[in-house]
């Protein structure tokens, strides 16, 4: 099949699986907290629902930006799918995509003019200082394997065993990053319920639909990178099982922990990043 078809196929899989995994996470959290919880496809239905709802735009919004930022979020995560499952490109590009994701989070919050969005925007700036070092775990993988190209990393692992075993601290750092992107997590300060819905507060209808669409893809992609880079060489069923396990584990953590306040969250992440980077480098040298 041609490239275009491949991209569309992978984006569709990423979106559907990501949405269902989000639903699964909510379900597991609910069961842990002794609630029935919504059906597993609830997140997906929400996304579809927003696409057919009436769109309203705040009078205070910074106009083209406010709309374009949702499209931007879509574009960067579709780009991530192209770099990841479709072409197996460079990890450095993921790094760039993640940096731009933080920017979009920042500006989706501030372009609406809502005070909740602005608070989320300030938190996005702070948390970027914590999450980007966590994403720098990819550099440690480079130091270990000598390549940034995903297909070469998979080959490396088939020869030397999974990276999860040889650089566990790096895997832990990446897991903390994944954790911080999941809803209701202790590190989800940009979407904490104390600021309504964070940067999404003022996005309604179609725009919210786009945001949720991209977030599902983002979740799938983060799990995909984790599984590919740290375990490697999985078949699709293996990916699915791995993703379900990680999502369930994240749900367990989220259900039993409170949301940290921004300072604690950032400091915890920075500490983990420091321990992870320093520890991994020491292990590599040793």
């Amino acid at each position: 099949m041609n490239l275009m078809g491949n991209i569309i196929l992978n984006v569709a899989i990423a979106f559907l699986v990501g949405s269902v995994l989000f639903g699964l996470q909510r379900k597991i959290m609910a069961r842990i907290q002794m609630r029935p919880g919504p059906p597993i496809i609830q997140h997906l239905l929400h996304t579809f629902k927003f696409f057919i709802k009436e769109s309203a735009f705040p009078k205070t919004a910074a106009m083209p930006f406010y709309i374009a930022i949702t499209a931007m979020l879509c574009v960067i995560w579709v780009a991530a799918v192209i770099v990841g499952p479709v072409t197996e490109g460079s990890l450095l590009l993921f790094f760039a995509i993640y940096a731009i994701h933080k920017i979009v989070e920042h500006n989706a919050g501030s372009s609406s003019g809502s005070p909740y969005g602005k608070l989320s925007c300030v938190r996005a700036v702070y948390s970027a200082a914590a999450e980007v070092p966590l994403f720098a775990v990819l550099i440690i993988i480079y130091l270990k394997t000598g390549t940034m190209i995903i297909s070469n990393i998979v080959t490396f692992q088939s020869q030397h065993g999974a990276l999860l075993l040889s650089i566990p601290l790096a895997a832990l750092m990446f897991f903390v990053l994944i954790l911080s992107k999941s809803p209701y997590s202790p590190f989800a300060i940009t979407k904490g319920k104390d600021i309504v819905s964070g940067y999404e507060t003022e996005h309604f209808g179609l725009l919210r639909g786009y945001l949720m669409f991209s977030e599902s893809i983002a979740w799938y992609m983060l799990l995909w990178i984790f599984l590919t880079v740290f375990i490697g060489g999985l078949n699709p069923v293996g990916y699915l099982i791995g993703m379900v396990i990680i999502t369930a584990f994240v749900a367990l953590i989220n259900a039993v922990t409170p949301i940290l306040n921004p300072n604690h969250s950032v400091m915890t992440q920075v500490t983990l990043a420091f321990i992870g980077i320093a520890g991994s480098i020491i292990t590599l040298l040793y």
């Binding site: 205070t60 919004a61 910074a62 083209p64």
Partner: peptide, 8 residues
């Protein structure tokens, strides 16, 4: 091309 946002 953007306008700035305002705050109420």
């Amino acid at each position: 091309i953007s306008k700035t946002e305002s705050q109420v």
